[in-house]
């Protein structure tokens, strides 16, 4: 009968094993940047780095609690099993006030510590007062099932005639804080950059500032993380991080040229332009 405890032991050991293996496997751990092959198994944004370390701290604390409680459970189910009528009788006690106080105060202290320890990072990634004082990169409007991204044109101002419109194509520059204004034109969506650990719901009727950065140029993915209808699964955006500002400016110029050519073409052919 006592061998049932081994089932619980096995489950606990495998659980710990899986989490011990996860950090050395790029597909199991927190998503990394484009240079994952080079062994960069950490986030590539400054907020992401903080979030990862908070994650690891919680993983360690909960891991210790998990191992402790599972050891106690396996021990109890192994050693205190009923050994038939000739076995030992169960002890008779109703509790212990001292133990109750101990196991109330210690977890309470740990939990308050965890909560307070998060506050700094939370404030720096979400509080509007912490938003970087930079020119906004773009206005991102989510709609079923695409990301309409509006960059300021040559005048550097949003909501003017020379704005550049792109669909599912977000560009910004390595090492610079990018600030976007997030909107939705129909239902709820969520702007999720897994490699950067950034997530913010897009809410119809609200304009929400979101900011992020990265220290690795390359290609990333933009995910919609809030159910938005039948095509939710395919609401994917491409993210390109340019090495330098010049590279970004070049891209912007060529994209603007492309757009005006399209508009001329639309006028010429009489079809409905933007």
């Amino acid at each position: 009968m006592r061998y049932w405890s081994l089932l619980f032991a096995l489950a606990a050991i495998i659980s710990v094993g899986i989490f011990a293996y996860a950090p050395i496997s790029p597909e199991w751990w927190l998503p990394a940047g484009p240079n994952v092959s080079a062994g960069h198994l950490h986030s590539v944004s400054s907020a992401g780095k903080q979030i990862d370390s908070l994650f690891v701290i919680i993983l360690l604390i909960t891991g210790i609690v998990f191992i402790g409680t599972q050891v106690a459970l396996v021990y109890a189910t192994y050693f205190f099993v009923d050994k038939g009528p000739n076995g030992r009788k169960a002890s008779y006690f109703h509790g212990s006030q001292r133990l109750e106080v101990i196991w109330t105060i210690i977890p309470a202290a740990i939990l308050v510590f965890i909560a307070l320890y998060q506050m700094g990072t939370w404030a720096s990634v979400k509080f509007r007062s912490a938003a970087p004082k930079v020119q906004p990169l773009a206005q991102v409007t989510a709609r079923q099932f695409q990301w309409v991204i509006r960059y300021p044109g040559e005048d550097g101002k949003l909501e003017t005639k020379d704005d550049l419109f792109m669909v599912n194509d977000l560009h910004f520059v390595k090492g610079k804080q990018a600030l976007i204004y997030l909107k939705s034109s129909d239902v709820l969506h969520s702007f999720f950059l897994p490699a950067l650990r950034i997530k913010q719901d897009a809410v119809p009727g609200l304009t929400i500032p979101v900011w992020f950065d990265t220290d690795q140029a390359g290609h990333y993915e933009l995910v919609c993380a809030e159910l938005c209808g039948w095509g939710h699964y395919k609401m994917r955006g491409n993210v390109t991080v340019h090495e330098t500002q010049e590279e970004f400016d070049q891209w912007l110029q060529s994209a603007l040229k492309e757009q005006s050519r399209d508009q001329v073409a639309a006028v010429v052919t009489g079809s409905q332009g933007r």
């Binding site: 979030i51 909960t62 999720f192």
Partner: peptide
């Protein structure tokens, strides 16, 4: 225990809706 991860707002930012 997994609830604690989600309760931590910055960590939740990554694992929310996953």
């Amino acid at each position: 225990l997994s609830g604690i991860f989600m309760a931590a707002t910055p960590v939740d930012m990554h694992i929310h809706d996953t």
